[in-house]
């Protein structure tokens, strides 16, 4: 249990509101710039990468709870957001986001997990269709191409999720690269990135 307590430093706790705000603003900005992806988990991923799975999980959950104040039909997606924070945090603890190979593997795992959870939720809670634009695509696949509902929902989600998660993981990765060692070391997982950087200086100059 001492490991769990280590994650709850004051710096980590203060990171949660910022992560939530980044999530909401990323989502707003994506809407404002009329991009068709959500980009509303950048903050969760960043916090999970810096402070570990538990803080990441809380950030994801709280973001959705706050969004639900305006639209309570979103509340069930808190399950997805907490799962995402947890997965990214666990990967970060293992040092996945310090090398390019690890980042690619991390993206694959995160997309797979998010498709799994969101497909299950779409089908069992909302019956396969929601208000998001991707639902039309689900409908076309299901009705016109004769694919079973589960498969149609999966295909349409894989497309949406891949683009969304690639960006949502790469932004925090580059942000962490831009942070100074001094700042990084204040966060629970900061040491992982600093160590990777020190190792990398000899050959890559990162």
């Amino acid at each position: 249990m001492s490991k769990l307590k280590d994650q709850f430093t004051l710096m980590a706790i203060l990171l949660i509101p910022i992560g939530v705000a980044i999530n909401l603003l990323g989502g707003t900005l994506a809407k404002q710039l009329q991009m068709w992806i959500f980009l509303d988990s950048i903050g969760t991923f960043l916090v999970a990468m810096l402070a570990g799975p538990v803080i990441g999980l809380i950030t994801g959950g709280l973001s959705v709870v706050l969004l639900s104040i305006q639209d309570p039909t979103l509340l069930p997606w808190a399950i997805l957001a907490t799962a995402m924070g947890l997965v990214v945090g666990l990967l970060a603890q293992q040092g996945f986001f310090t090398r390019w190979g690890g980042i690619v593997a991390g993206i694959v795992i995160v997309v797979a997990a998010s498709v799994l959870v969101s497909v299950l939720m779409s089908i069992y809670l909302y019956g396969g269709f929601t208000t998001s634009g991707i639902s039309i695509f689900t409908g076309i696949l299901h009705d016109n191409m004769g694919l079973p509902l589960g498969l149609s929902v999966t295909i349409s989600h894989v497309l949406g999720e891949t683009v969304d998660k690639v960006i949502s993981i790469l932004v925090p990765v580059f942000v962490i690269r831009a942070l100074s060692k001094r700042t990084l070391l204040k966060f629970p997982l900061g040491e992982i990135y600093v160590n990777a950087r020190t190792r990398g200086t000899s050959d890559a100059g990162a």
Partner: peptide, 25 residues
């Protein structure tokens, strides 16, 4: 063009907020 505008906006926002965390603490 709009996609490309996303990054120069969100990047500095995130970095400045993280650096500000210490002050808050």
């Amino acid at each position: 063009v709009r996609i490309k505008a996303f990054f120069p906006t969100i990047g500095p926002l995130i970095i400045s907020s993280i650096v500000g965390v210490e002050e808050k603490a």
